[in-house]
Structures are given as structure tokens and as C-alpha cells.
Computed example of a mutant assay.
Amino acid sequence: MRGNTGSARAIPVMFDRPELDAILRVYGRLVMSGDCKDYAIDGLSDRAVFSIFRRASEFPLYRIEKVPANARKQGAWKIIAPGGAILKRGHDLANLLKFFDKRRFQVID
């Protein structure tokens, strides 16, 4: 029988099914519009990250992060630009994802 050596790993933070469904709907719209072609999901000890890429070999265009430790402060959710700037932050994922509404990406002639 093995004892606890103190090196037990923390359970990583992940997206639950409704959260991931909402994020993937937005990602699907971005793929259909040609704005992106790849994504990555990371479950870390303190956050879950959904990265959206234009191409797989580049830096992510956007990162959608869930940080439960910030839930009571500025909100558990944020969208981060490639340079690290926080584009939007909030408590509600649905409101946060409105950042990607179609009207934001229309080309004006």
C-alpha cells in the first residue's frame, strides 16, 4: 500500500459541457467566416484555456480563459489578445462571448 508522498497532483480546471458547447459555437462561426482554422484546449491547475488560431503554426488570435479563483473579483472569464491584453472580462460566459458577434467582424465598404 502506497502512502501519500505529498506530490499529489491537483485536478486541472476544465470547461464543463455547456461552457464548451457555447465556445465551440462561436469557434464554428469564426471558422465559417474564414477568420480561424485551429484551436487548442488546455486544462491547467488554476485555469482552463481555449485558444483560437488563424493557423496551427501561429500564436493564438484569442484565448478564452476560465479562472475560478477570480470568480468573486472581476469574473472567472476573460478574452485575451495575442499581446496579452485583456479584451473583455466578466462573470457570465454568454455575455463574454458576445464579443465575437458577427457585427464586429463586418467589412465596411
Score class of each variant (00 low, 15 high):
101 D>W: 02
61 L>P: 01
43 G>C: 14
96 L>E: 02
83 G>L: 10
10 A>G: 06
48 A>G: 06
57 S>T: 09
24 L>T: 12
57 S>W: 08
76 A>T: 06
55 R>T: 13
76 A>W: 02
20 L>T: 00
22 A>Y: 04
56 A>D: 13
67 V>I: 15
99 F>H: 14
66 K>V: 06
93 L>V: 08
98 K>D: 14
55 R>L: 09
2 R>A: 10
62 Y>K: 00
28 G>P: 03
70 N>R: 07
42 D>F: 15
82 P>L: 07
5 T>K: 10
86 I>A: 15
9 R>D: 12
16 D>I: 10
9 R>F: 09
3 G>W: 07
43 G>K: 09
96 L>C: 04
8 A>F: 04
8 A>T: 09
39 Y>A: 12
49 V>C: 09
59 F>V: 12
95 N>T: 13
55 R>P: 00
67 V>L: 12
77 W>L: 03
69 A>Y: 10
24 L>K: 10
12 P>V: 02
1 M>A: 11
62 Y>Q: 01
99 F>G: 01
59 F>K: 15
61 L>S: 11
83 G>C: 09
70 N>V: 00
34 G>W: 00
53 F>V: 00
98 K>I: 05
4 N>G: 14
1 M>Y: 09
64 I>T: 04
85 A>Q: 14
66 K>T: 06
7 S>E: 15
66 K>F: 13
52 I>F: 04
7 S>Y: 13
57 S>K: 12
3 G>P: 02
85 A>P: 01
85 A>R: 12
54 R>A: 15
60 P>W: 04
77 W>Q: 00
38 D>R: 06
33 S>H: 05
83 G>F: 08
50 F>E: 07
97 L>M: 02
58 E>D: 14
